[in-house]
Lab assay of single mutants.
Amino acid sequence: KSAVKALFDYKAQREDELTFTKSAIIQNVEKQDGGWWRGDYGGKKQLWFPSNYVEEMI
C-alpha cells in the first residue's frame, strides 16, 4: 500500500470520510475507481477521501 500527500485541506462531509490539512501524509492508501480512495490519517483508519486532493509520493 502507498502513501499520498495532501495538496489542499479537506473537511469530511460524511462520517466515513477523512479530514486533513494541506501537506498531510495519508498512509495505507487503497485506490478505487470513481475518484475516491481509502486511507489512514489522524488516528482514523481506511476512511474515504477525494483522490484529486492528493499527490502520490514516490
Results as ranks from 00 to 15, higher is better:
53 Y>A: 11
36 W>D: 01
18 L>F: 04
33 D>M: 11
16 D>F: 08
17 E>Y: 04
47 L>Y: 13
39 G>E: 00
3 A>Y: 14
47 L>G: 15
53 Y>Q: 06
8 F>Q: 12
29 V>F: 02
26 I>T: 02
44 K>H: 11
48 W>N: 04
22 K>N: 06
28 N>V: 04
53 Y>P: 01
11 K>I: 15
14 R>G: 11
35 G>A: 10
19 T>A: 07
51 S>F: 07
44 K>Q: 14
15 E>H: 11
45 K>P: 03
37 W>I: 00
16 D>P: 02
32 Q>L: 15
16 D>R: 05
50 P>W: 06
28 N>D: 05
42 G>W: 06
50 P>M: 06
40 D>V: 00
30 E>C: 15
50 P>A: 05
15 E>K: 11
17 E>K: 00
28 N>L: 04
30 E>A: 13
15 E>D: 13
5 K>H: 07
17 E>R: 01
9 D>G: 10
14 R>T: 11
42 G>N: 13
14 R>K: 14
56 E>G: 06
53 Y>N: 04
37 W>V: 02
58 I>D: 14
13 Q>W: 06
45 K>I: 15
45 K>V: 15
18 L>Y: 03
58 I>F: 14
56 E>N: 08
3 A>Q: 14
58 I>Y: 14
3 A>N: 13
11 K>F: 14
44 K>F: 13
8 F>K: 14
45 K>G: 05
51 S>A: 14
33 D>T: 12
53 Y>K: 07
11 K>G: 07
55 E>W: 07
39 G>Y: 02
41 Y>K: 02
18 L>T: 02
52 N>K: 10
45 K>Y: 14
24 A>R: 03
1 K>G: 13
37 W>Q: 02
2 S>K: 12
32 Q>F: 15
24 A>H: 04
50 P>E: 03
12 A>T: 04
7 L>G: 05
31 K>T: 07
51 S>G: 06
52 N>I: 11
56 E>C: 13
33 D>V: 11
7 L>D: 04
19 T>V: 04
2 S>F: 15
51 S>C: 14
19 T>W: 05
35 G>W: 08
30 E>H: 14
37 W>T: 02
46 Q>A: 10
19 T>S: 14
19 T>D: 10
33 D>H: 12
46 Q>H: 09
17 E>M: 04
52 N>M: 11
20 F>V: 00
16 D>Y: 08
27 Q>D: 11
43 G>P: 07
5 K>I: 15
57 M>T: 10
34 G>R: 06
2 S>A: 13
45 K>F: 15
42 G>H: 07
50 P>L: 06
49 F>D: 01
28 N>I: 04
41 Y>N: 03
32 Q>M: 15
24 A>C: 12
43 G>Y: 07
52 N>P: 06
58 I>S: 13
58 I>E: 14
21 T>G: 10
56 E>P: 11
44 K>E: 09
48 W>A: 05
7 L>K: 11
38 R>D: 00
29 V>R: 00
52 N>W: 13
19 T>I: 02
24 A>E: 06
25 I>L: 08
27 Q>T: 15
20 F>Q: 00
11 K>L: 14
16 D>W: 11
15 E>A: 11
14 R>A: 12
45 K>S: 12
15 E>T: 10
18 L>N: 04
38 R>Y: 03
39 G>C: 05
27 Q>V: 15
31 K>N: 02
3 A>G: 08
29 V>N: 02
15 E>S: 12
48 W>G: 04
20 F>D: 00
41 Y>I: 06
43 G>I: 07
24 A>S: 13
